[in-house]
């Protein structure tokens, strides 16, 4: 194999890898939006991640059915969330959380709840 063929093969491999990388990346992003953006955009049936605050007093928990329901708000808009899974550590009313799930018929069927990292760097003294 001469140098030129090697270069061409190398270039083709690199381009294929880049295309693969790009496609993987495009395929693994989900919109990360606020409740207002969820309500105003067209996200029906799509997998989304919503960040917001768990509304005080809205959490309803039924361990027997393994069902957790609550309302999520960004201050102006609110959405109902239904979740059947394991409650993450530190999940609390009034907390900032990220809820991943599918939105349909004014209900977000969540499959994951992430509590914003309990970062030691963000706590502010009152």
């Amino acid at each position: 194999m001469d140098k030129k063929t090697q270069m061409i093969i190398g270039a083709i491999v690199i381009i294929l890898c880049l295309i693969g990388l790009g496609m993987t990346l495009k395929g693994s992003v989900v919109p990360y939006i606020t409740v207002t953006e969820l309500k105003s955009g067209d996200y029906r049936g799509e997998h989304v991640q919503i960040n917001g605050t768990v509304v005080e007093g809205s959490v309803d928990w039924h361990p027997k059915e393994i069902l957790l329901t609550f309302k999520l708000t960004d201050g102006s808009e609110t959405v109902d969330v239904e979740y059947r899974g394991s409650i993450p550590n530190n999940f609390e009313e009034g907390k900032m959380v990220v809820v991943g799930g599918v939105y349909d018929m004014n209900l977000l069927r969540a499959d994951e709840i992430l509590v914003k990292c309990p970062s030691k760097y963000t706590e502010e003294i009152e």
Partner: peptide, 14 residues
């Protein structure tokens, strides 16, 4: 665009 999140799947696949 709207903000997007890259899922862990991307890092694993690659």
């Amino acid at each position: 665009g709207v903000q997007q999140m890259v899922q862990a799947g991307y890092y694993n696949t690659v």
